[in-house]
Write a protein that binds this DNA or RNA. Structure first.
Lengths: 345, 345
DNA sequence: ATTGGCACTCAGGGCAGACGAGTGCCAGCG
DNA sequence: CGCTGGCACTCGTCTGCCCTGAGTGCCAAT
């Protein structure tokens, strides 16, 4: 078990290491922090911390560096959020106000966050799983093409072009629209998907339009699935290159994860938030996602029942207190703006 | 003036340097290429090439490296495209076939290209400046929100949510729709934008709906502008990290350009294509775009009059013959698929 | 439990020497 | 006149070496 002072030593090591990027020795700790004990005492504490695998020495005669486990303890038991300055809060507020629609708001959010922290910022689209389909619209482009548009009552729009096998005429489109609209309009996403699945399961009728209806229904179903699945908005990948020395290996796994999105979605989905809605995933904890040298911090935000996360992706050696405070503050503003929007309906 | 053999020496230097990433000396040239002359002769040629600033020596006693100007001469006067293998062609074809709508096709294209070349791949959306508005649709979400959807006859769809000042009811929406649809439907993008500008220029009437119409018209106009402006699809940014040693400085300007898009759009817009539709921009030629250590190669592709580019972004020291061949081949397939689509209408 | 002292380790910087790849130049040859 | 072999020279890189200093672990004393 680590003593109270031991924890303070760990705190000092984490803080100094994050700041200086250099292994920190017992001497520099007593210099920079008012422990009131000698370096030798600190050394004894450090030996204990090392036994617990909270810190490690890169080579025999050198200062200590926190291990992933050390960061974990730091975040869970020691660190307190470093509140944002009022200037920072004001910057967020002015950056986010006057946003247009949801897309615009999220883009601004992610930019604000990356600017604030210098890390890669990530915002999950609010999940619309609970939304209802308010509208389906079909636009005939002539020939065998139809643009299929689905709108939910939360204002999400998805659109896709269906390329049919044969030609259709305007009146066909109207018929198809009526059929499919009846199936999904006013229903929840899940119900809509189910209704379409039921339709596709029925045996084919000989009707000329049957094939068309099926083809279009399949597209609609895909679009509904898209609402159900989450999406990400990101910004700040260029900052990774500047922090490159923070990553022992290459940053290309990170860039891949950013490009893939799926990995990050899974990762953010699996992270467990504390009672404040904050969550961290540190270094090797991300190993199965190919991000063993990176950390992710997230904060939940809420939009009228819908629920999603904003987060940061950066080196394991990041400033957790500031970054956690930043995601929390941004999530907070985002929730508020979305709620105001909601009321404005 | 450089002799014929001088050019062949330049070719050898470029090819070897691209392959080995090391300055190439006179000796290794006679070893690897069948020049039939001695190293001393090559040295004389190299001295001339250096006088013309086509190659340079990193330090006094070391092999030569092509300058940007050298790459330029190589591309313009020496290099011949290295045709793709049939396996590669087959890979492209199978990768692109069975694409869904335009978005899907372009995403596949850009993935194919990055996989083929190992560089960052870029595809410009075909320009829809000449398209006509075929449809505007308004979906009332209740309260003061309307989703504004614009569809062109080329199948592009743009959608945005308008948040109005006051509440509107269903019948208002119908009125607004009629007004605006009359303004833009069937017209070209440019005409539509103009018509809306004219509307906004008229003095306000006292009509209750006038403000609503104006607000919505402004949104429609923005959406039309979006059709006019180009957009990019990209893939492969992670490859940059792997090639990082190819860039003397940091790769962060490149990542920024990728995230910005605007820079790349401008750059690709300014590049001048040869009679084959191919264009290159090498190293310092991109200096004003902050990409002095990068090169871009592009190939035009055509979709029934609409015209855009596919390209690659990579280090100056790239394999131009292969990359040019790759963009040309991919552009070729893309044109063909788009034309088939067109016919299928 | 804390401390000062001490021996020990080891990364990093500086220096010198050897090596070798590569050059420029020149005189000679066909 | 172009090509060639030869040769002296340059200079970056590698290697081994030493030294320094930061930092450690341990121990006996308080």
């Amino acid at each position: 078990m680590v003593s109270e002072r031991g924890l303070q030593v760990l705190r000092a090591i984490v803080e100094d290491y994050v700041e200086t990027h250099e292994p920190v020795g017992s001497r520099s700790i007593v210099d920079r922090h008012a422990f009131g004990v000698s370096a030798a005492t600190i050394r004894n504490d450090m030996a204990l911390l090392e036994e617990d695998e909270l810190i490690t020495a890169p080579h025999t005669s050198s200062g200590r560096v926190p291990t992933d486990k050390g960061y974990r303890v730091f975040v869970d038991r020691i660190a307190e959020l470093r509140p944002l300055t009022t200037a920072q809060r004001a910057a967020i507020a002015s950056f986010l106000k006057d946003s247009g629609d949801l897309d615009d708001l999220l883009v601004r959010t992610v930019r604000a966050l990356t600017r604030l922290t210098g890390q890669v910022a990530i915002v999950q689209y609010p999940s619309f799983a609970r939304a209802n389909v308010s509208h389906v619209e079909f636009v005939h482009l002539g020939g065998s093409r139809i643009v299929v548009i689905v709108v939910t009552d939360t204002g999400r729009v998805s659109q896709r072009t269906a390329l049919l096998r044969g030609e259709v005429v305007e009146s066909d489109v109207a018929t198809v629209k009526a059929t499919i609209a009846a199936l999904v309009t006013g229903r929840g996403i899940r119900d809509g998907v189910q209704a379409i699945a039921d339709l596709l399961a029925t045996p084919r009728s000989g009707d000329r339009l049957d094939d068309v209806v099926r083809a279009v229904a399949r597209i609609v179903s895909e679009e509904l699935e898209e609402f159900r699945s989450d999406r990400l908005v990101m910004a700040g990948s260029a900052t990774l290159a500047r922090r490159e020395s923070d990553f022992r290996g290459s940053i290309s796994p990170l860039l891949e994860a950013i490009e893939e999105q799926v990995t990050l979605l899974r990762l953010m989905g699996e992270m467990v938030a504390d009672e404040q809605g904050l969550a961290t995933s540190i270094g090797r904890e991300n190993e199965s996602f190919g991000l063993a040298e990176a950390s992710v911090v997230t904060s939940d935000y809420d939009a009228t029942g819908a629920h999603a996360r904003v987060g940061l992706l950066g080196p394991t050696r990041m400033d957790y207190p500031s970054n956690l405070a930043a995601v929390r503050a941004v999530a907070h503003y985002l929730s508020r703006l979305l709620d105001e929007d909601e009321k404005a309906r």
